[in-house]
Design a protein around this nucleic acid. Structure first.
Length: 452
RNA sequence: GCGAUCAUCGUCUAGCGGCUAAGACAUCGGUUUGUGGUACCGAGAAUCUGGGUUCGAUUCCCAGUGAUCGCCCCA
């Protein structure tokens, strides 16, 4: 086979047969397949997410992956990295400027407005999951296509919702078996007090400009809040004594933050206030937060984050609607689940194998298979195989408890052999009583489940 | 977008400037045809791509691609 492949390749080269572009058997950079072996983890995330969403009153919504590009540039912010250098944007044949969504909130807000969802009783709680796209440099836990689970609540200004939303995020992570996490919270104020604070910060940074790293010198005017987040030693020193946004909030924002923290205390959530927490999207107001994995051995990931965006809906052309939400990164959750050896979801597996022998039995087995399936009995098979021996081998490998053997003789008699794989004992039963018997046997204790 | 490390069967690994690139696991088939697990036998299966150095490259060099790590940023 290989030889023919190689020969073929060479002869193609020599004779210069039409230059057919070969199919590149590789996922695009930063994108990966989610293989069957990983699905138990994904299933677990899905189940926990859906269960929690239901319990906290969030309804599922799915929006398109592609939207008009300016939905994102206008909401996330022109100057942000996400928009500036990470967006998958292109022009369609029809001339529309579109983009693959880099996050879920913008699309959800668009849908909220477009579909007049403001008529629902507040808060309107929505959750969605799906892939988002960012054209950045891949690493472990950071992909160009990754999945997020996103929760948003519209129409409620009360800080109690901020606390509840964080509780949902926290419990989502906890319920996956990730116990050790840290919640960081901050308030970045409203447009009014943030502007004042920003000026203050710019002035301060200006006075210390000489002590900043190259990047931060640039940032200090373009996006001064980001300087606070810089990990360079000298920048940390500068930002350590920089004015903090929480000390320069207007009355309303300060009260909001204070009450919010009281609710958090009430919930016993392990949070810390990080005055230097700023986020990469422009639409946030007041409360912002992130949840970090608690890996002691160096590597830490942001598992999720979010915040309040009271001005977003209005700025998009909707009614004045306060809102708060968060997103978690599914790949990172799974990475962390594996690290702490959290249990993935274990899907039901077939405990019965059906083996057939001879043309007549083979023909009947297909029907019998569906009869069993209709009765809720999961059956494995390898119908294409001929010998009973090889079928039993497969049955054994699959670790089933029972194997049904259907041969020429049984088919003519309207019976089947039921073999207990652990003991090797087998009995012949009428096909009519098969379902009943299998159910009984699967419940019985003497069916030993070995093979994990 | 910047820097670093790496790249061999499906998976994990071995190997060497040279002639059939080795092994394990997995897969498929067999050990007398209607009975599995163990054992034995057999088969298929790889040097990421493109250049260069060389008599000769999987091995050395360059570029591309990808992965991982550190920045940047974020989920």
């Amino acid at each position: 086979m290989v030889r023919t492949k190689k020969v073929l390749k060479k002869s193609l080269k020599k004779t210069k047969v039409q230059a057919v572009e070969p199919i590149i058997l590789q996922t695009l950079r930063g994108m990966k397949d989610i293989l069957p072996s990983d699905q138990p983890y994904w299933d677990q995330v899905r189940r926990v997410t859906e269960r929690l969403a239901r319990d906290y009153g969030f309804f599922r919504m799915d929006t398109p992956i592609v939207e008009y590009a300016n939905l994102f540039t206008r909401t996330i912010g022109e100057g942000t990295d996400i928009v500036e250098k990470e967006m998958y944007a292109f022009t369609t044949r029809g001339g529309d400027k579109v983009a693959l969504r880099p996050e879920l909130t913008a699309g959800n807000c668009r849908s909220y407005i477009q579909n007049g969802m403001s008529v629902f009783p507040k808060p309107v709680k929505i959750f969605s999951t799906g892939p988002v796209y960012r054209y950045d440099r891949p690493q472990e836990g950071r992909y160009r296509e990754h999945y997020q689970a996103n929760f948003d609540a519209y129409g409620e200004i009360d800080p109690i919702l901020d606390a509840q939303v964080i509780q949902v995020a926290y419990r989502l992570i906890q319920n996956l078996g990730i116990k050790s996490v840290q919640i960081q919270v901050n308030s970045i104020g409203c447009p009014v007090c943030r502007k004042d604070y920003r000026n203050l910060l710019v002035n301060y940074l200006e006075s210390k400009k000489a002590k900043l790293c190259q990047d931060c010198k640039r940032r200090s005017t373009v996006n001064p809040l980001r300087v606070l987040d810089c990990k360079e030693d000298k920048c940390s020193q500068v930002s350590a004594s920089a004015p903090q946004s929480i000390n320069h909030l207007c009355d309303e924002c300060r009260t909001h933050f204070k009450v919010f923290l009281e609710y958090l205390d009430e919930l016993d959530l392990p949070y810390i206030i990080n005055p230097r927490l700023v986020r990469g999207l422009d639409y946030y107001t007041k409360t912002v937060f992130e949840i970090w994995s608690g890996a002691e051995d160096g590597k830490k990931h942001s598992l999720g984050g979010g915040g309040r965006y009271d001005g977003l809906i209005k700025s998009m052309g909707g009614e004045d609607t306060p809102a708060i939400g968060f997103a978690v990164g599914v790949e990172r959750l799974i990475l962390e689940m594996k690290r702490v050896q959290a249990k993935p979801y274990k899907a039901p597996r077939p405990r019965v194998f059906m083996a057939q022998l001879g043309n007549l039995a083979k023909r009947k087995s297909l029907k019998l298979f569906s009869e069993l399936e209709k009765n809720g009995i999961l059956v494995a098979e390898s119908f294409g195989r001929g010998s009973l021996k090889s079928q039993l081998k497969v049955a054994n490998k699959l670790g089933v408890d029972l194997t049904l053997i259907l041969g020429q003789k049984e088919t003519l008699d309207g019976t089947a052999i039921v073999k207990n794989m652990a003991t090797g004992v087998q009995e012949t039963v009428s096909v009519d009583k098969l379902v009943e018997l299998i159910k009984k046997k699967l419940k019985a204790d003497n069916v030993v489940v070995y093979h994990n």
